[in-house]
Amino acid sequence: MSIEIESLVFRYEADRFELAIDDLSIDAQQPIAIIGPSGSGKTTLLRLIAGVLRPVSGRVRLLGHNVSDMTDKQARAFRIANVGLVFQEFELIDYLDAHDNILLPFRLTDELTLDADARTRADELAEATGITHLLRARPDELSQGERQRVAICRALVTKPGLLLADEPTGSLDPDNQKRIVKLLRSTAEQSGAGFVMVTHDHELLDHFGRVIDLPALGGRRA
């Protein structure tokens, strides 16, 4: 469950943004929080780890695989098999009900099969997150907290080795924030997945085994 970053440089040319990290090794067996102020590159780092973005130079090794050198197709296949993503705005599909949203990864790629096991897994996750009674509801019929629970189930339904959460509590009130972080952590633990979460909220840091302060690593250079 390891993440290793070596001599990483990433640039957004358009807004003259550069993220540079010399060396970073993360053991995601324990919950990890990546913190930093807005615009410090937290989301960018998470997407580099997930293989969504490619660095200009350097390497990102995830679960022993160099995701930086993979083709788009390979990175996508690797991500589908190994990484679950949770977003701040949940990114649920508004014309699908909660159940279909949870099973969505199975409909987007040939690498996953939507079989009885997948459906059972979705039902188990729904039960674990307390949304079994909401599975036929569409996103616009759910509260913010309920939507995030659906998004968590979707991220874990493929049994990933690593759960990456990008400020998943940013849209929630303080009570719901703590509840969702606990839920993410416990659900990831139950699923045997590592857990890395980006946040700028210092009050949530008690829930994590390790906190990585991105500016302290070098982080953004403008």
Binding site: D72, K73, L92, I93, L108, R154
Partner: peptide, 16 residues
Amino acid sequence: SAEFMSLRLIGASPGV
């Protein structure tokens, strides 16, 4: 476009 970006992040290829 936001929906399509979500689908890409979740695992959809541009072809899909």
